[in-house]
Amino acid sequence: MQTLRTLREVTELNTAGQETPREEKEFTRSGPHFSDRITADGRDGWPVEAGRYRLVVSRACPWASRALISRRLLGLEPALSLAVTDPIQDERSWRFTLDKGDRDPVLGIAFLSEAYDAREKEYPGGVSVPAIVDVPSGKLVTNDFQRLTLDFATEWTALHREGAPDLYPEEHRDEIDEVMEGVYQDVNNGVYLAGFAKHQHTYEDAYRALFARLDRLSERLATRRYLVGDTITEADIRLFTTLVRFDAVYNGHFKCNRNKLSEDRVLWGYVRDLFQTPGFGDTVDFDHIKRHYYQVHTAVNPTRIVPVGPDLSVWSTPHGREELGGRPFGDGTPPGPVPPGEEVPEAGRAR
């Protein structure tokens, strides 16, 4: 998720656009400006190194949630520290107002934009999460949300916990990539295309593509527990982060309202199965999610009223997906408890 560096309509926070009249501009998602990779051999100048980097996320953001889940499943918490921003941004970017003194205790900055400026002075683009910052220099390393978690799975292996699952198994990568591309275009990004549409036809096109893809995914998951193979992979992480937000925000706020996710037996069972798997639901903060979407997107929700529902107790109800078989962690094991200080606050937990 991005924040623009100047005051504009808040609904354009995630847009990268050409200089066209505002009333004609449709939502587009920009690629990462900082696409350096942190690799085992350090070929981009950033070697994998325990304790050197800090992962900055918003728990509201589905793209950042991918990194949170991957980090948990792989056991990278001791090697890669975590900074969580306030879900409510302003024109100066993501803020560290959840921390004492309104500054990140490790980086010493008040706004994530300061790490961007340290890397490239007067960088004109959006300030996005997830982001990885080099602690010694205070410089942003990467904001490449598409590549970041794949590198966690393949380049950070020396720092994985014992029993970490293989989230991007080599023998299934072609299929995983194909599934993820459709999920990205029509679901992950599709909800934004619908929610930020400026014209009726644009909205309807995104709406139809979204639900057509969800129908295909529902059919696929009717006979298998996970998207690819019989274990959790990167593809499941990427689908989960949109589905877990669907009824709380996308169904109403973004007008993706053909049906609620809870009305699709297969997808509702699938997302609850993942939510109840260690490493997934224990990273989800529904309070941050709802407050961000309903209070930041003021052109979509000018009253800034945050809905009370939906009922979060349903997330702990039986899903019945075990009967499909599958091994969530393959030959590995579940992650351990959430590290102290990283727990989701009580206000945001499903009860």
Rank of each mutant, 00 (worst) to 15 (best):
E170I: 07
R66Y: 12
V179I: 10
R208W: 04
H319K: 11
P334F: 02
D247Y: 05
R224V: 05
L55E: 09
W268H: 13
Y192P: 01
V141D: 09
D174F: 08
H319G: 03
N14H: 03
R349G: 09
G281S: 12
K255E: 11
R8D: 14
P310H: 08
E162H: 07
H201I: 01
W94V: 00
K260N: 06
D311N: 13
H297A: 01
R37N: 00
F286C: 11
T39E: 07
E170V: 13
L107N: 12
T283A: 07
D186V: 06
R37P: 00
L4H: 07
R291F: 06
V228P: 04
G320Q: 03
V106T: 02
P32W: 09
R147K: 13
V141C: 03
G325S: 05
L150D: 13
G330F: 07
L324K: 07
I38V: 15
V344C: 07
Q2F: 08
G325P: 05
A64S: 05
E9R: 01
A79W: 05
R349Y: 14
T154Y: 12
A347F: 04
Y168D: 04
E77Y: 07
K121S: 15
E263C: 03
E162A: 09
K260Q: 10
L221T: 08
V249K: 11
H297Y: 02
A118D: 03
Q2H: 09
A153C: 08
D331Y: 14
L214A: 03
R291D: 03
T157V: 15
A83I: 04
R72V: 00
L167T: 02
T142E: 05
E263T: 06
H172M: 08
A350M: 12
I132L: 15
R291M: 06
G325C: 06
E23A: 02
Y203M: 01
G190A: 06
R173S: 04
G252C: 00
E323A: 12
R321H: 09
V179M: 13
L68H: 10
D205L: 06
V10Q: 10
L243H: 11
I69A: 15
R72S: 07
L274I: 06
E170G: 05
Y184A: 08
A153V: 04
V129H: 09
W315T: 00
A110R: 01
